[in-house]
Amino acid sequence: MLDRAMAAISGTGHRVVNGVWRFGFACRFFLAVLLHSGISFRRFSLTIKEIYFSGVLSLIIILVSGLFVGLVLGLQGYETLQKYGSESALGTLVALSLVRELGPVMSALLFASRAGSAITAEIGLMKATEQISAMEMMAVDPIARVVAPRFWAGVISMPLLAAMFSAIGVFGGYLVGVVMIGVDEGQFWSQMQSAVDFRLDVMNGVIKSCVFGVAVTAIALFEGYDAPPTAEGVSHATTRTVVTSSLAVLALDFLLTAFMFRGI
């Protein structure tokens, strides 16, 4: 009985110590990525290649999801608003919810599962097949050559994807609200424009998605780099990337929203 309690306590202790250790390593890894970022900009073609893989190839899923989210927002928003006779505020509802929350958050979650998991799997496999080791032996720093360009590609792609998600979502809301249901087009746009502030709403959304881009890409890269170099290790790391980065996005979203939209 006592033995089992002791084992549980020491097990927990081990896990906590391990967690802190890993977190410390993650911080050092992140710092190293930032310090070795020079090459990502001096040889921008490296970063461009990664923008293609994480940004361009995520485009379809982002655009399709954005359109559907906009369509649903249009339908649900109309159902609720018409009870209070304020269908004309549909544009405001759709635009604000997309620009402030759904655009950055949904696209970050989709990005985590589409591009983040791919990054983890790729880096993990490069490690498992000794490509990272080979690069080190060829006197090329894998952090600078492999990790940093992927990081900056993610940071650049994320706000662009989020903006496209929001824009096509608003278009989806317009399709349902104005074209299908018949809300007055002038009111739809004008109410939206008077309620959505460029600096406070649009720019804050962009800032949010930049932060999410940093978080998701950094987590994906770290999980890949830290993965045990086996098939099992890589598949676990891929799962962890999606889980950790989704939770990180939601938690960061709460924090950022609390800072940005609490008025003062």
Partner: peptide
Amino acid sequence: WVGLFVVAGLAAVLVLAMKVGNLS
């Protein structure tokens, strides 16, 4: 492709600024 992607992204920000927001 990357060029198209970046242009489309910036265009989306612009749409959000001019059409959705009240920058104009």
